[in-house]
Every structure is written in structure tokens, then in C-alpha cells.
């Protein structure tokens, strides 16, 4: 199933991006080549041979929204005052440079992003009348916004994946070291004996005194107390131990799937991150969601465990566990 979900994410993503870009091109969402008329208030003459000014483009929100066909909700201000720099080239043509700041309308920010992730937008000035303070300009062309975003995301997320993996090295080493001591001292074995009645039912394929059981229990406990730094290394240690019982390398066993589902259901006694964010946003009672979160996660865990036990009986998943006899293949080949 992972195969299909993975390729669907990719294909749906890329086709949607292409579709949206074609739609943008047809309806000219970014008004490429259409001139904008606005007020331009010069604030300061720049020291230059040819006329150049620091100034502000003034445009009412209503005409901005009408021009770009955007909704009023996207703009906070009723009047846009955007700093801009007007320069005159040797050819006599005038250029407008619009630096992107926090006050810049979201739509222009989006356009600047699409124009190459720069921190400014450029525009060709068609006419500028300093007396009437009136300016007419066309913004630089913005095309293939979504396709560019998709390309950028593909590269950025690949880098993120490596960063995340590498940032695990330290905590992994720490916890694997401590676990190894616990294992050598027989502490893991002791732990497995205590929880054997539960684990025997959950993981019937794992011998009750196997080190995998100890690691799994510690991972689940760490998750419960919200110790994410400790939970992942312990979980990976458990996977390593479970893999020692795996007759077919590269294929998940029933025990692994069960363990994974317990982890993805995210049963936590204190969802610390959420509480912190709620407190930060000024909630009257940040911890109000503790009970509801435990309820939600308990629903998820129960449903997940039932699902995993039913699914593992399906022929299509059972079939994948069968170890092919390699010797037989060699003889036939």
C-alpha cells in the first residue's frame, strides 16, 4: 500500500501544480503585462545623474483587490502604502523596484516568491508624472508559480530529511549506550518478565523474554511521558531486536506492524507541545485538552490494534511473509 500512497502523493502533487499553473496562465491570475495605475509619492531624491526617487506607491485596497481579483480578507489595511525605488536607466526607461517587507500585500509577496524567491519585485514604468504624482507600471512576469514551488519543495524536503536523520545521531548514541548497559546487566530481561502477560497477547510471535519486549515497553513508556528524545532511540532499538526474529529481511513482521501502530497512534499522557502552544496563544486553560487528547489517542490505539490484528490475517499480507527457498531458485535457474 505504501507504494501506491507514495506514488499518488507525487503524481497528484505534480499534476495539480501543472493544472493550477495552466489555469493561472489562461485566466492571467498575476495580471502579466497589464498596466497598474497608482499614486507615487516621492519622499527623497536619490543622488544620481538621472532622475531617481525613494517613494511610496499608494493604492486603495479596493482597487488592488479589483485588479488582482483577490478577496478583501487577504488585506488588513484599507490603503496600501508600499515603499518603492524609482530609477532611470541610460536608455531613458524608468524602472520600479519594490522591496518586500512585512507591510507588503500577501499577493505581492507570493509573486516575489514565484519570481525567483527574491526579496523584491521589479516593474517597468510606462509613465510617471511627478507633478500629478501618477504612475503607470507593469509588474514583472510571474509564471509557473506552483511548478516552481514544487521543485523547490522537492529539494528543500530532501535536505530536511538528511538534517533530521543526522540530528538523531547524538541521542541515538546516548540511549543505545544506556540500553546496552541495561541489557548486559539483565535489566531489560527483568522488565520483560513484569509485562509478559500483556506483551504475550500483543506480540504472540515474540518470545516473552526477548530483549525486543523490553525495548518496546520502554519506548511505549517514554512516549506516554512525552520523552520524545528517548522514545525514538528506544523504538529503533526495539525494531533492531524485532528484526533479529525476522525470517525475511526487508519485509515487516506482524510484531513490527503492531508495534508501529502503537507508536503512530501517539498515546501520550501530557501532549506537552500542544499545551505550550496553547499557553503561548493566551489560552485561559491550556491543559484543557489533556483529557480529550487521551480519549482521542485511546480511540486511535484501540482501532489501530484491532485493524492490525484483522489485516494480518488477510491472504495478501500473509503471502508477503512466505520465505522463498533460494536454493530451489538457483537449481531451476
Amino acid at each position: 500500500m505504501l507504494n501506491y500512497v507514495w506514488i499518488s502523493l507525487l503524481l497528484i502533487g505534480i499534476f495539480t501544480a501543472v493544472g493550477r499553473d495552466i489555469n493561472d496562465e489562461v485566466t492571467n491570475t498575476y495580471r502579466n503585462g497589464v498596466p497598474v495605475t497608482a499614486q507615487f509619492e516621492t519622499l527623497k531624491q536619490r543622488t544620481s545623474v538621472r532622475p531617481a526617487y525613494n517613494g511610496e506607491i499608494i493604492l486603495s485596497a479596493a482597487s488592488f483587490n479589483q485588479f488582482y481579483n483577490t478577496s478583501a480578507a487577504q488585506l488588513q489595511q484599507s490603503e496600501i502604502r508600499q515603499t518603492a525605488i524609482l530609477t532611470t536607466l541610460t536608455s531613458g526607461k524608468q524602472k520600479l523596484e519594490i522591496p518586500i517587507s512585512d507591510a507588503t500585500p500577501a499577493f505581492w509577496k507570493e509573486m516575489a516568491e514565484a519570481a525567483g524567491g527574491k526579496d523584491k519585485l521589479e516593474a517597468d514604468v510606462i509613465s510617471f508624472d511627478n507633478g500629478k504624482k501618477e504612475i503607470i507600471f507593469t509588474m514583472e512576469r510571474v509564471t509557473f508559480v506552483k511548478i516552481k514551488a514544487v521543485t523547490k519543495a522537492a529539494i528543500e524536503y530532501s535536505n530536511t530529511a538528511v538534517t533530521i536523520s543526522l540530528s538523531l545521531i547524538g541521542v541515538m548514541a546516548l540511549w543505545l549506550g544506556i540500553m546496552k548497559v541495561g541489557e548486559a546487566a539483565g535489566l531489560l530481561e527483568l522488565l520483560t518478565k513484569v509485562v509478559a502477560p500483556v506483551t504475550r497477547r500483543l506480540f504472540p510471535d515474540v518470545p516473552p523474554n526477548h530483549p525486543a519486549v523490553g525495548a518496546m515497553i520502554m519506548n511505549i513508556a517514554a512516549n506516554m511521558f512525552g520523552l520524545n528524545n528517548a522514545a525514538t532511540p528506544m523504538g529503533l532499538k526495539a525494531m533492531e531486536e524485532l528484526n533479529k526474529l525476522n525470517p525475511k529481511a526487508g519485509t515487516a513482521t506482524n510484531a513490527m506492524c503492531t508495534f508501529l501502530v502503537i507508536n503512530t497512534s501517539g498515546l501520550t499522557l501530557i501532549p506537552a507541545t500542544v499545551i505550550a502552544i496553547r499557553a503561548g496563544l493566551g489560552s485561559a486553560d491550556p491543559g484543557i485538552i489533556i483529557g480529550t487528547s487521551i480519549f482521542g489517542a485511546a480511540c486511535a490505539t484501540t482501532a489501530g490494534l484491532i485493524a492490525v490484528k484483522i489485516l494480518q490475517r488477510l491472504p495478501r499480507y500473509k503471502k508477503e511473509l512466505i520465505v522463498e527457498d533460494e536454493n530451489a531458485e538457483v537449481k531451476n535457474g
Binding site: M1, C257, A300, T301, T302, E320
Partner: peptide, 18 residues
């Protein structure tokens, strides 16, 4: 592990019920 078998469907069912 490359063949993840029923882990993903079971995980998504869990998410849905959560």
C-alpha cells in the same frame, strides 16, 4: 524494511478513528 505490509493501512485507520 521496504515491504511495510499492513502497517500503513492500520496506521491510517488508527489516525482516522483518532
Amino acid at each position: 524494511i521496504k515491504t511495510t505490509r499492513h502497517a500503513l493501512p492500520a496506521g491510517l485507520i488508527a489516525d482516522f478513528f483518532g
